[in-house]
Design a protein around this nucleic acid. Sequence first.
DNA 1: TCCCCAACTTAGCACCATTAGG
DNA 2: CCTAATGGTGCTAAGTTGGGGA
Length: 578
Amino acid sequence: VEILYVSKVCRNYNYVPCRVGFVWEEEKYEDGIKWKFLEHKGPYFPPEYQTLPDDVKFYYNGKPVKLSLPAEEVALFFAQMMDHEYTTKEVFRNNFFRDWRKEMTLEERQLIMDLNKCDFGELHAMHKQKVEARKNLSKEEKLVNKEANQKIVDEYGCCVLDHHRERIGNFKIEPPGLFRGRGDHPKQGMLKKRIQPEDVIINCSKDSRIPEPPAGHRWKEVRHDNTVTWLASWTENVQGSCKYVMLNANSKLKGEKDWEKYEVARKLKTCVDAIRAQYQEDLKSKQMGTRQRAVALYFIDKLALRAGNEKEEGETADTVGCCSLRVEHITLHDTLDGQKCVVEFDFLGKDCIRYYNKVPVIKRVFKNLKLFMENKQEGDDLFDRLNTQMLNKHLSSLMPGLTAKVFRTYNASITLQQQLKELRNMKDNVAEKLLSYNRANRAVAILCNHQRAPPKTFEQSMANLQAKIDSRKEQLDLAKKELKQAKKEAKGSSDNKLLMSKAVQRCEEQLLKMEVQATDREENKQIALSTSKLNYLDPRISVAWCKNMEVQLDKIYNKTLRDKFAWAIDMTEHDFVF
DNA sequence: TCCCCAACTTAGCACCATTAGG
DNA sequence: CCTAATGGTGCTAAGTTGGGGA
């Protein structure tokens, strides 16, 4: 019997799916319970380290040294990264060398004292050769690999959660290697150790088949906690944080959570005016803390800044969000470029992505900022009477479920909806409609500061495209001339002329398509659209747009996104309003 | 009240498979 | 049909949030 997926999501919307077979009525669990039955095979472990072939040698101070297995494995991690800028950085090298020496035998440690005297050349060459060989595999060999991988996915990549077979998101244990933090990370280059089954906690239901640990091993623990969604977890040694094996985004559990997130954001829409009025009022408060909260909220709402938790100094790169802004991150301009009360932001945010923005603000915010900056110096918190807990506590009192990040979701989604409405033109062809969609998406990405490194081949590929446009233009001119000539001289059959005018038309269409593509690509040089599409934009806005504009959904959502947003695709009609 | 941690979402990058175009 | 470019996918780091304990 086919069991259909009818989630709480759908039922809340009185959605009735087309019935193929028996429809399972989901139970609604009491608060905090995530599942009643969970069965899986445990995580998949990376292969054990294989020692180097005899002809590949490591040299210290010009002399070949046969390293012990653990030391050799870590040496290879470094050798594999030698084309990367990381390995030239002082911090990276120092951290690596310190941790590498910990893996050495006493003898090795006494010999190998200086990283600069280490020659990983042969190890590096071997690695490059392996990469090359993998690239040059025949079609058949690649297919064999693909099938082997699929087998692993089938066995370890799926689980049964309640009545559904679900895909797992990350069922593979992270292989050992050198830690690659983002930006100026004080721990970059440290050894990320190999995870053993003895490090792994398994979570599943009591009445399921408990996963077998790999031969000769045992699990750290097997627990049956149905108030959490993870299937396995371990503690990572570099930062000491927990890592989890969790479900794929297309699972029912994740889908419902996602839907809930957007419903909270939609609820904010109904009370955002009142909340804005409230913080405008709070800007005048006698309490310094309240004023700071109001200014922070103004930034979070207007600029979609992140909450900004405090971070432990020296443990991570120096990045900030709203509440953790320091005085050096903003500059106040009474007037700038003809605008009054301009705040210039310049700081590193999540993933060390730079946030740079000059924003005119209302007078009262500007005056408060001046006040907050008085008698402070570089390194001092801008909001010294505020943190994220206080902010979120206040927000949840204004609306149940409201936190700082809801503003990002709300402002992203509402911006997309507004932009799509403004750019809407039914007369556009599909390419132009898609350009409009991307531009709306881009407005959101800019708001949320979702950046990317310009693709390495960007200039070249832009030039290539331009060359193609130019040659197509010439071709079009030629085709037009020929057609004109033929008409003038009344030569050639009418069939032929029809053919010629068709060719002109096709040429024009292709040219337009390429020009639109060039515009889109240029505008998108440093902007990442995917993050907002995946995490901030209520998919129902996009699904409804497609229906209204008569654009195929797969033009804007790939397979992964269509799977993730299956709930939205199912329930959304053309008249959906965020 | 503060602090810390568990649990979960959000993030950019590297690499790979697919596909458009020559 | 082959190659280069591109979009898709996997990976894992880096955030947010809420709750529990000192």
